[in-house]
Amino acid sequence: MTVMIDVQNLSKQFTLHNQGGISFTVLDNVSFNVSSGECVALHGTSGSGKSTLMRSLYANYKPQKGSIWVHNGHETIDIADAEPRQVMRLREHTIGYVSQFLRVIPRVSTLDVVMEPLRMKGAERDEAEERATGLLERLNVPERLWSLAPSTFSGGEQQRVNIARGFISDYPILLLDEPTASLDNHNRDVVVEMICEAKGRGTALVGIFHDEEVRSKVADRLIDLTNGTETE
């Protein structure tokens, strides 16, 4: 098993310059690693920094201290200190992210939203479309919605579009921010199945799962951010 993500002494503070310059620490000296084929769940009370850590792993947030080493082929890149160009490449080929909410692009159809990550990598339209329709079918997104922009969809439908988009590219690393939060039981089980298959392919996963049942089914380890402990 290869270590895919190695977080070392990560600290993140926010300073609100326009609100009296107040400063607060959200992550304090966090260290852990994730190997291929493993799913690690971030755990902790609300406000303990789960989402902040998740966003830092995707370089969406910029930590002040520490490093996040990401295994990428024959090199290892510290995404906390990488050039935008390197981060873009990592996001294209190595790290996928299923955010809690779909950020909708006006006018773009569901099928195109799902296909985009593959198209960015240079895949042919036919190939991308085949994969996208397969995922949408599996996630029970009705075919009549595929040509529509997802902005008017229900929360659960949007979330499934987002999951399809995250799973289309077989990234070696996948970050999941509450992927089952607004899904019914049946679709929740489909997502659990997809996560387990990804583990089987050797994907390294990091997730936030509020649903205890889901968590116990997919997670190999818990990182507790409230008190900084790690449990099997």
Binding site: H17, R55, N60, K62, P84
Partner: peptide, 21 residues
Amino acid sequence: QGLTDQILDDPQHPYTQLLVS
């Protein structure tokens, strides 16, 4: 300067924070 979503979601400079908010 930096990655677009990082600048917009986690702005560091006081002026960028003002602009985003």
